[in-house]
Nucleic acid binder design. Structure first.
Lengths: 197, 197
DNA sequence: TCTCCATCGGAACGAAACGTTTCGTTATAT
DNA sequence: ATATAACGAAACGTTTCGTTCCGATGGAGA
């Protein structure tokens, strides 16, 4: 969000105020947490950040772009465990994701992002790109297991990641983040072992 | 939406115009299909239905309520196949669901409903109830297979349904309804057979 | 038949948020 | 020192919201 801007710069003048953009991102998060997706307006964010609306519109072309930045800002610590056991890896991944969504504003923010993507094509594209990257990274868990000979050759790692992420996303969207560890483990076990007798 | 209204009625006067409410529901569906969730406004519906806004607000307290009515009006029975083979049953179920979403307005309407549920608690509750019912019905496919001894005793039928539905929902939400049959079959196969070597 | 009165479509309202423009100020590279 | 860029603040016109009037319509009770 700033690299290409800085590269295209060819003249003098004041630089972008990091103080201001930080305040805007913090205000956006606070508004989202306190008032929910319904009360999330650019005006409200500007008021709270003591910033001008043009400043927000200059750097974030749409509400979706701001939402995406807010989400990725606090998404530093996601576990991509490597225990040498694919079932354990996937379980820990899903478990930490659920915990993260429950204990931070991330869950609510991501819900808003998904909702926004149903109305705004720009948001949909941003979400699709993010989801594809996520599938690739989560798929590496499976690729490692495949290299160990733990997973069948015919399996598509990204499709496994897709299945696991879908399970988590729908639980988030339908307000079912309170599943216990045993349930999560059975879900992962279903994918790893199948359901056959 | 009309039973208690009719019961509370204690005086004379014109009755509710079925013609008008039908036109409103049809117009709402048309607007949703043509302009998407973003362009779905009460004003647009009223214009299209040649109805007054107060008439809409009188009978549908919120946009979510109108969406719910439109959705329930659209929804028809999905087939719950019974081929005697759980993999084939699940594949046909998912396949017909994708086709239904692609070829009718149901997919778009359901996307709007999911988006609305992230902002409106009433819509969220309605969605949760619908999803629970869906899991129970789809779970019967698995229960039948379990009775045939095709599926392990330890498997929770509703959780299998949950996994399959999650895969489908996320594909709908992220605009990936164009997966080919081979991909869908591999996804189902993943759940049935697992991914182990 | 005549009289209510609930409901209808239509027009207009204030409130809120939208996205944009303008203004004066502040900060920075040349 | 000067030119330039980003800033906060305010105002703009537009859109949609949900509500409130109004006259017309038509079915139930006297």
């Amino acid at each position: 969000m700033n690299a290409e801007t800085e590269a295209a710069r060819r003249s003098v003048g004041a630089r972008r105020s990091l103080e201001s953009s930080e305040a805007i991102l913090e205000a956006a998060e606070a508004v989202l947490v306190e008032n929910g997706h319904a009360g999330f307006s650019i005006e409200a964010v500007a008021r709270r950040a003591r910033a001008g609306k043009p400043t927000i519109y200059r750097w974030w072309p749409s509400k979706a772009a701001l939402l995406l930045d807010v989400y990725q800002r606090q998404k530093r610590d996601v576990d991509y465990p490597d225990t040498g056991n694919i079932e354990e890896d996937l379980f820990r991944f899903v478990q930490s994701l659920f915990v993260h969504w429950r204990q931070t504003p991330s869950g609510g923010i991501f819900r808003s992002l998904l909702a926004e993507a149903q109305a705004d094509p720009a948001a949909a594209e941003a979400l699709a790109g993010y989801a594809a990257g996520r599938r690739a990274r989560t798929g590496k868990l499976v690729e490692r297991a495949k290299a160990r000979g733990e997973v069948a050759d015919s399996v598509d790692p990204e499709q496994v990641a897709d299945m696991v992420a879908s399970y988590a996303w729908v639980h988030l969207l339908t307000g079912r983040l309170d599943e216990d560890d045993a349930t999560l483990r059975r879900a992962v076990c279903m994918i790893v072992d199948g359901i056959k007798a």
